[in-house]
Nucleic acid binder design. Structure first.
Lengths: 201, 201, 201, 201
DNA sequence: TATGAATGAGCTTTCATTCAT
DNA sequence: CATGAATGAAAGCTCATTCAT
């Protein structure tokens, strides 16, 4: 096995182990030796692959963010031509997000909670990612307004972030209740309904 | 002044100073002596009013939560009889929340970020508060359904949390952008619009 | 006791204890906890008075250098008018140096050996002190040439350092052999003889 | 090439590399991997030729000491019959020493500084070498007294070490100022002058 | 009641050394 | 014979907490 490949593999192993321990104990309560113990390696080995404790937290978050980002990039914000198209897109992305965080509970824990306990920089980084999601949703709304199936006077900037707020609230709640399928569809349905027609009788 | 009153006052002073320092430096980066220095007291004095570092964090969060809770308790979830009443209630509560977090930036910082950096227990506590807000919003929706101005088949439990997600997203974003008034009204308007009629053309 | 006075006293106590331990075990082999143990204090206390391990080494050396410098500053390089005056000055300073290092063996150990084991900076600092001694001896020679009792064509710069070399060699050797009085006078006599008339028959 | 020869050669290569790195960074600051990197070998290889870090320091010093010793062993302390002979011997040995340390700066650095940073044992070893030089100079003086060209009542033991002190002071200073030729001759001349006739007018 | 000097548990990190490949 | 991945002893340092004054 070429050396670079081994390094990549080891790094990933440690990343996995660290995610698990951090998700379980919390970042501050996690010692490097906890991670080492989890992996059955000497704690000195950890430092061969990561600079320091901060570094692993950053990498775990980066990994989570990358994975989440992968979930949405292949859906084209300009693809929908009717409100029905859009609703389907919504349901598709929603399903992916809900499923991802429910199937990757450790990453979810880090994404939603632990990152804030590391330091200001990482908190900021996470906020930037959420903001990125905001701009992404903006593009969907933009498209809807242009195509005419969304209200012309929509406050796109704000509405995009509001929608994001609902989605993250839902993802977080199903993650916490750990009742996967059960609530997932109710959330997707409720969010879609609110977005498309509101709740007035 | 009775002794107990003096103690209460001192406790509050320390709470204020601690809020400020924690909001500025972050919980983990805050030393007890930083708080003492901020207040011009000996750091031993701190321990006469709070058990330990954890305790002050808990108190700061409790204080923030109490304040926020005060903002909504005097609005009666059963008061609205028409969708217009409800819209006005919504706008009232929204305004209060936006204003509160913008005018109490230190508490906002603790509420939105620092609490997660303390430990699992406090994170859980914060989640419970948010859940409480969820049940509160449920009552508004319940009332709307009963009175007939909201959709009969509304998924109340989920929708309530979705609305909360929007509100907190908005409050957090205006707090972070620190542009108070400017975006506040756009958020309230956008959220109300989504809730009541959605965004379909 | 005023606070500043207490701090000064404590610092001095620690300095003494550190000198002892460093002289006994060597700088590298000395742990902060060794110093603390020697003094019967907690090792955290050490850090209330000194920034870090490096700091104490620097202070110990500084202290030694100050003490040694005190030994020579009150002898006026311009005071001697005859070669006999000069010889007496020589014997006076020599006696002081020999006695000092024999009576302050811990400082001697640090001065002659340990300082080099700390780092480049401290080594340089020590070299600068020795150079300072060189310039000081130069002034004696300068005076002797001007007054006419020393050779007119003396290479003052070099000769001054050569004399220093003899003195330090002697001080170091009597320190190491720890035979104080016994060799001291032989050294002073031999160095004086060499300086004044050489050893040719 | 016989195996033993290969080993000898490798050992010497590593010794050279180690000397360089130790002289550059200082013994304590030098890692085994620094030495390996310098030589372009794996750091495990180092341990095939030297027992441990301490061992290489010892060997580097031994090597330096051997080289220096080589410089003086071929001059016969009993060869000089007149004070002029002796003066020439002096100048010969002086020149060699000055040149050696100026042309082997890495060894000089180790000899004068780094050896003290290793441990007590090595420091002692170095002191023994210097003492050896002392006994060697003694033999020259002994010869001079016997032959009658040096003072009969010379304190040979002490004077020998005093002379050594001058020589090492000079060698060290020219090494540090790195001005080779320029000061070398002034030192040799000044030391000779002091030794033979002193500096009285 | 207020103080801050003293404390040491407990952490992160380094790096000489080993040994399987 | 050469390598470098793995290791863990060992050290410096921080800071929440205590308690004598």
């Amino acid at each position: 096995m070429p050396n670079a490949e081994l390094v990549r593999k080891r790094r990933e192993q440690i990343l996995k182990g660290a995610s698990k321990v951090i998700a379980e104990k919390g970042y501050q309560e996690t010692n490097i030796s906890d991670i080492a113990k989890e992996l059955g390696i000497g704690h000195g080995t950890f430092y061969r692959y990561f600079d320091n404790k901060r570094h692993i937290a950053e990498q775990v978050l980066s990994y989570a963010v990358d994975q989440v980002t992968q979930l949405i990039v292949d859906v084209d914000p300009e693809a929908a031509n009717t409100i029905l198209d859009y609703e389907n897109q919504l349901k598709e992305i929603g399903s992916r997000l809900f499923d991802f965080f429910n199937n990757n509970r450790e990453l979810a824990q880090v994404f939603f909670f632990e990152a804030y306990g590391v330091d200001r920089d990482l908190t900021t980084k996470l906020q930037e990612v959420i903001e990125l999601f905001g701009t992404y949703v903006e593009r969907y709304l933009q498209n809807g307004c242009q195509k005419g199936y969304l209200l012309q006077d929509l406050d796109i900037e704000i509405t995009a972030r509001a929608i994001n707020g609902m989605i993250f609230a839902g993802v977080l709640r199903t993650f916490q209740k750990n009742n996967g399928e059960v609530e997932r569809d109710r959330w997707i349905k409720s969010i879609s309904a609110l977005m498309l027609s509101g709740m007035a009788a």
